[in-house]
Amino acid sequence: DGSQKDLVNLDGTIPVNYRGNIYNIPIGIFILDTHPYNPPICYVKPTNTMQIKQGTNVDANGKVDLPYLRDWRYPQSDLLGLIQILVIVFSEEPPVFSRSAS
């Protein structure tokens, strides 16, 4: 309805093991004022040397879509569970890549 709110935003990286290397994937988690009864909004936040890899769970804007978010149920669903699932999902399909200089 066009209303605006200040949301708590968790900003940071999560450790992802991809092909034997650990990468710190930058993400942002926006926690709604109805938390924990509604899911947070999650984004991948590429640095200026990275590009978003649109895929199964991430759209071209970096917004994350997961069954865990769509089927969010308090108290079974929580932020720690979300982050654990992001680590697993992103280790199979990294959502960002670094552009190499070559």
Binding site: T13, Y18, Y23, N24, F97, S98, S100, S102
Partner: peptide, 16 residues
């Protein structure tokens, strides 16, 4: 306070 931070990193893709 000194909060430990990690540097964002991602797999490299070579651009042809």
């Amino acid at each position: 306070t000194n909060v430990p931070t990690t540097t964002p990193s991602a797999p490299v893709v070579t651009t042809e």
